Amino acid sequence: MSEVLKKEVLENLLERRSIRYFKSEQIKDEDLQQILEAGKYAPSAANQQSWHFTVIQNKEVLQKINDVAKSVFAKSGNKNYEERSKAKDFSAFYHAPTYIIVSADEKAIAPIADSALALGNLFLAAEALGIGSVWIHAVNFLYTTEEGRALFKELGIPDGYVTYGSGAFGYNAGERPKAASRRDGTVNIIK
């Protein structure tokens, strides 16, 4: 690997930020395919590749997901979710034009880690292509409700698969966030 490429890879890792304001313009199909391919090449426990990616770009389906999320949030008992559901312009995925749900076989060795690593690859690939992204953890809460599980079945998430995270993807419509300072005391090196 060339020194220039190494530097670009490291910069991509350090510069990626969560984007929460998206343009309505849909990402290109070829970019989506590259992002998904990067997700498929994430590390996984015992190389089980336990993940399944559900990509939603249809506006009506995105609205349905948002409506279910708003309803579930409103009656969740979680103060943050309840407050969020009251927002006039509520969007569980920040109005992004592409939403990717990552589920995994619940019988896999490490489905949570597999899903998280796959999402990380999706986000880093998007960054390299000039596409913004943000982790959406609320999908995990939806899965705990009957309404959410019915929605996921309708979306074609395989039986025996549990949702562990999701991501919103699109072109940034806001100011690029600055990195928060890193906490001290998070590394021990033993030689």
Rank of each mutant, 00 (worst) to 15 (best):
T144Y: 11
Q63I: 00
K7W: 07
K178F: 12
D31M: 13
A42R: 00
K70W: 05
E147K: 08
K86G: 03
L129A: 05
F93Y: 10
G160M: 02
I189H: 14
I109M: 15
E82T: 00
S2E: 15
K70Y: 04
D29K: 15
Q33D: 08
I101W: 02
L32F: 02
E11F: 11
F123S: 14
F53T: 05
K40C: 14
G165R: 06
D184P: 10
T186H: 10
S85C: 07
P97Y: 03
F90I: 06
Q48P: 04
I56E: 08
K7H: 11
V72Y: 03
I100N: 01
A38S: 06
N80W: 12
E60M: 03
F53S: 05
K107A: 13
V9L: 13
A173D: 10
P111D: 11
I157H: 01
K23P: 05
R84I: 09
S76K: 03
K88D: 09
A38G: 02
P97N: 03
A110K: 13
D114I: 05
I100S: 01
A96Y: 02
Y21C: 13
K40P: 06
R17N: 04
D89S: 08
Y94N: 09
F73K: 03
L124E: 02
R84T: 11
P177W: 03
I136Y: 04
K59F: 00
E3V: 12
K75Y: 04
E127R: 14
Y21N: 15
Y81W: 12
L124V: 06
Y164E: 02
R176I: 15
I27G: 08
L10T: 03
E83P: 00
N188F: 14
I27E: 06
L117W: 04
K23H: 13
A74G: 07
V162P: 13
F141K: 14
A92S: 13
F22A: 09
A128F: 06
I100H: 02
A69C: 06
A118D: 00
F93L: 09
R16C: 07
I131P: 00
A125I: 04
N121R: 04
E60V: 00
